[in-house]
Nucleic acid binder design. Structure first.
Length: 410
RNA sequence: GCAGGUGUCGCCAAGUGGUUAAGGCUCCGGUUUGUGGUACCGGCACUCGUGGGUUCAAGUCCCAUCAUCUGCCCCA
């Protein structure tokens, strides 16, 4: 039997209802804040990602779904959303429409990784980007939208972690200082850290090995290396969060896996056990150099992305709309009635039996499938023009109703 | 990419080398025609993830492969 490829899954039933709720919640929030949807291609030139995400990142090194098409172009299934959005921003000259460009997107992303709880090879993100906005107030708006999103879904038990990576020169100075520190104890740390030292020294800081962590306790922190400008932005961001009543936790070891981040970076993490080790459900930050690096103007930007699968795992259940089942001995008459009812009722699903099965079977089906209502529409009702309606959950029956009374009850 | 666990019907699950692969739930049909999830009857794995091998004999042993789970790496 042919199965879905490793790391992919079918979404249906209750999960699908939860996904719809997640997407509807996000879309409402984005519309209210004046963000516009953008749909970019699912595959792009491979070069876009190696330039945007960074040659040293794990994503580019070992996780991309890259292939050559029939004309030998190297293409890649997008591993994240920001690169494509920025490419579209530049290509379509969005800067002429006025800045910042406030955009949101959703859709599948692809990374060739070992599948696990909360980790898939095809996974889905919803993200927002504000391109061409330097003021820290846009960071605050973006972060607030993430926090509101979580709240609107009724999720608790999430913590906002933030850190600053500073501007390019602060970051360079810090990395230089960090490398000096790391070099002293390079022989005593794990192999991964020795590799990180070469490739991405920042990542050493969130190493999981306890012995290594002991050593890193004395490492210089990035905050001390922020230059005046970066320091000022960092202060304003924190003040703003407090003003907005957003609780946060400074995490000096939060460095993120993509190379394009600058200044503020943040993650919303859950304490729930349901996601095993994958406890980050929403993450983002500022990327002031990315647009320029991809050939656009010098536009500072900020954004985040959330993982739909991870959020969905945290949501237990969702309310389905109530349903009505038409019990009839004539499918065509039931179909005509269903059509009419669908036009004239709101927020109720109208269903019927398509085959001429027995009365009792139809009623049992309605009960088993958890329909709230059964509407009797057999020859007797059709002749009299009066309906019988039953609330199956409350076991209440309403007899001899005319059509308008049926509508009132639903 | 590395280390370990698991794979018998849609779901749960017995089976530990020997004739026709328990059982439960769900599902489908019926118990002569318009009212409740009950009860009763019947149906639903030529096959044990897949492919090889060992054996007179394999769901049961061996190898490979695939899938899945857990930890690491990393990430949403």
């Amino acid at each position: 039997m042919v199965k879905a490829p490793r790391g992919t899954q079918d979404i249906f039933g209750n999960s699908s209802a939860i996904w719809q709720r997640i997407e509807a919640t996000a879309i409402k929030l984005f519309n209210e804040a004046g963000f516009q949807e953008i749909r970019t291609p699912i595959f792009e030139s491979s070069e876009l990602f190696s330039r945007a995400v960074g040659e040293s990142s794990d994503i580019v090194n070992k996780e991309m779904y890259t292939f050559n098409d029939r004309s030998e172009r190297s293409l890649t299934l997008r591993p994240e959303g920001t690169a494509g959005v920025v490419r579209a921003f530049i290509e379509n000259s969005f800067d002429r429409e006025g800045l910042p460009a406030k955009l949101w997107y959703r859709g599948p992303m692809f990374r060739y990784e070992r599948p696990q709880t909360g980790r898939y090879r095809q996974f889905h993100q919803i993200g927002i980007e504000a391109i061409g906005a330097k003021a820290p107030y846009i960071d605050l708006e973006i972060i607030k939208l993430g926090v509101n999103f979580i709240q609107d879904l009724g999720l608790t038990n999430l913590t906002l972690h933030i850190n600053s990576l500073g501007n390019s020169s602060s970051r360079e100075n810090y990395i230089a200082a960090l490398k000096v520190f790391l070099k002293e104890s390079l022989e005593h740390v794990c192999e991964d850290c020795q590799r990180r030292y070469e490739q991405n020294p920042l990542r050493c800081l969130d190493c999981k090995v306890p012995e290594d962590q002991k050593i890193y306790q004395n490492a210089p922190t990035i905050i001390k290396y922020l230059d005046e400008e970066s320091q000022k932005i960092w202060q304003e961001t924190q003040n703003g969060l407090t003003e907005l009543g957003i609780k946060y936790q400074i995490d000096e070891k939060l460095v993120r896996g993509l190379d394009y981040y600058t200044h503020v970076v943040f993650e919303l993490k859950t304490k729930s056990e349901k996601l095993a080790g994958q406890n980050t459900v929403l993450a983002g930050g500022r990327y002031d150099n990315l647009v320029k690096n991809l050939g656009g103007g010098d536009y500072a930007s900020v954004g985040w992305a959330l993982g739909i699968e991870r959020i969905a795992t945290l949501i237990e259940e969702t309310h389905q709309i109530s349903k009505l089942y038409i019990i009839s001995d004539s499918p065509i008459e039931a179909l005509k009635l269903a059509d009419k009812l669908r036009l004239e009722t709101k927020k109720i699903a109208i269903e019927l039996a398509y085959e001429e099965t027995k009365f009792k079977k139809q009623l049992e089906k309605a009960i088993k499938r958890d329909y709230q209502w059964a509407l009797f529409y057999l020859s007797e009702e059709r002749n009299s023009g009066l309906f019988k309606l039953k609330n199956l959950r409350e076991n209440k029956e309403y007899d001899k109703l005319d059509y308008s009374q049926v509508l009132e009850l639903l």
